Simulated scan of single mutants.
Amino acid sequence: MPNTARWAATITLTATAVCGPLTGTALATPSPTSLYAPSSLVFTVGHGEIAAEATPERAATLSCAPTASGTHPAAASACGELRAAGGDLDALPARPDVLCTREYDPVVVTADGVWQGKRVSYERTFSNECVKNSYGMTVFTF
C-alpha cells in the first residue's frame, strides 16, 4: 500500500508540474516558452533504504525552463546547480564544509520527470538527513 501511495503522489505531482503551465487561453502565435525543452522534476524524500519501502514525507516540484518555478523553496538556485551538473543528479558534489555524524538513519530521495526533454528517474539513499543536505547547495534541501 505505501508503494501505491508513493506512485500516486509522484504521478499527481508530475502531472501538475508538467501540465499545469499548459492550462489557460490558447494563443494564435507561438509562445516563447515553446522554444525550450521541458525541464520539470518532482522530488520526494522519505526515511528508509529504498523508495519502494519508504513512505514519502515531503515532495517538491521544480521547473527550470524557461524560468525557475515550482514548490521547491530555492527553485532558482536548484535550477542553477542542475544546469551546472548537466542535469546529472549524481554529479552534484558534496560540500566539504559540512560535517555530519555517522548516525545511520537512511533517507531516500527520488526525482522523476524530464530534464531538457529527456526522461529522468533517480533514486539515491543517503546515510542520514545531514549527508543528504550536504550534496549540492539547494537541490536536495526541500
Rank of each mutant, 00 (worst) to 15 (best):
C100D: 01
T16K: 14
A65D: 12
I50T: 15
E53I: 07
V114K: 11
T16E: 14
F142Q: 03
R95V: 07
G24Y: 13
T138M: 02
A52I: 09
Y104I: 11
A26C: 14
I50H: 15
S31W: 12
A51N: 09
R119L: 15
F126V: 00
T110R: 01
A5Q: 12
D105H: 08
V42L: 04
E49R: 13
A76C: 03
A8G: 11
T16M: 10
L89E: 06
P21R: 12
S34L: 14
T125G: 03
E123T: 04
A26N: 15
L99I: 11
T16S: 14
L35A: 15
V108C: 02
T138Y: 04
C130V: 05
W7L: 15
V109R: 01
S63N: 14
R6V: 03
A68D: 12
V18T: 13
C130E: 04
D112P: 01
E81M: 00
P38T: 06
L41G: 05
A68V: 09
G113Y: 09
A91I: 06
A37Q: 13
T67N: 08
Y104P: 06
V120A: 06
A59F: 14
A59R: 14
L99C: 06
N128Q: 06
A15D: 15
E49P: 03
L62K: 00
A9I: 01
C100N: 02
N128F: 08
F43V: 01
P32A: 03
E123H: 03
T101M: 02
V45G: 09
P66C: 03
T44Y: 04
T14F: 15
A75G: 03
P56N: 09
V120G: 05
A37R: 13
G48Y: 07
F140Y: 13
T29E: 15
Y36A: 04
M1D: 08
